[in-house]
Design a protein around this nucleic acid. Structure first.
Lengths: 197, 197
DNA sequence: ATCGTATATATGTGTTGTCCTATATCGCCT
DNA sequence: AGGCGATATAGGACAACACATATATACGAT
């Protein structure tokens, strides 16, 4: 599980609660390469503590649940470094959108077009958000050489997501053009005969 | 689960066994947008039959296990058409490789470079394979207008994967160049001090 | 002669991830 | 006054997925 290593990675930069991990990091600077459910974060922290790679300290609070501040242990740092030098490749492909397009021969050209246009607009939003984050991160001045290094690497990963998103928007534009010129053949069954609701 | 709809989609083109679904389609023409375990295919077929969207017919064989040939039912076609017109967006991002790069500030420039070069070579192979499939599919003549339509859409999805892969190779080239010029800061902890095995 | 591969389905088990709900209080907005 | 969002953790239930193993035989290669 890579979530465990994301957690170790962030705890390597300083002690934190599960809440912080989720809201300040996973939902923010890490959101373009990993997503995780809140429940899963807490459960993973539990597991990591049982494994001895993190330790927790309870900080009492008034009015709120006690904070459980986790820190990485030396064994945790070791495990993270081991993970860092192993080769990690992108995960198995599983893309419902491409699947939809693949099986769209039963739809009319108009329906296919609609799907493509809608996907384009979603992707464009995502791309804009990524670009905003990139300019924002680029303009932020880092207080230390270590942070500069972190920022450079973080920027590189953002560039990857931006490049991918842009390539996909371009591809969608090509598809839209092609469908507008008309796809070969005709749909076997039209949706409009089917779903007259 | 989209696997269910992949299965319905392929069964829509003709009756088939679980074995065929896995070996002739999922491991082949569908592999760039979906991957599935053999066990999962059979279990999903079971479920789909209980749901009444597919029916099975047992074909006895000598020397081999009986074939269980599945066909899509009218209700299955309906369910597939419903799914086809719904908007489907790419799944949540989960990329161990980007994560690795993000947390690589504890590695030396040389180690980061090694990771990038290795990723590049894997991706390049993947890209070559996709391109081969594309030329192969393009050169195949389709027997009917429906097949032509299928082929056009299939080609479009292949183009998406190719565009993504190419964008990523280009991005990796940029990264490699940048790291060769040197990343800012220095690693906090070197791996070489750590793993002298 | 045996080893591997293709054909064909099935189960057991564990892991990872999702969704929903519960709890408790503070502060802000309407 | 009352509702909503932020702070903070936690458990139950389930779906999806991965990995290993079992069974049985034909056929070609070494």
């Amino acid at each position: 599980m890579s979530l465990a290593h994301a957690i170790l990675g962030f705890l390597g930069r300083g002690p934190m609660t599960g809440y912080d991990l989720k809201t300040r990091w996973l939902d923010g600077p890490a959101s373009h390469f990993w997503t995780a459910d809140q429940a899963q974060v807490y459960r993973t922290l539990d597991r990591l503590e049982r494994e001895g790679v993190v330790v927790s300290e309870i900080v009492e609070q008034r009015g709120r649940p006690d904070r459980i501040v986790y820190s990485i242990t030396p064994s945790g740092r070791e495990s993270m470094l081991d993970w860092l030098v192993e080769p990690h490749h992108p995960p198995p492909v599983r893309d419902p959108f491409l699947m939809q397009l693949f099986f769209s021969s039963d739809l009319s050209d108009e329906d296919v077009l609609e799907i493509l246009v809608s996907a384009r607009s979603t992707l464009q939003e995502r791309l804009d958000a990524l670009r905003d984050r990139k300019t924002e991160e680029d303009s932020r001045i880092q207080p230390s050489p270590e942070r500069e290094r972190d920022a450079a690497l973080s920027g590189m990963t953002l560039d990857a997501s931006i490049a991918t998103a842009r390539a996909n928007v371009d591809w969608l534009d090509d598809c839209i053009e092609r469908v507008q010129r008309g796809l070969p053949g005709r749909p076997r069954r039209s949706v409009h005969q089917h779903s007259k609701r």
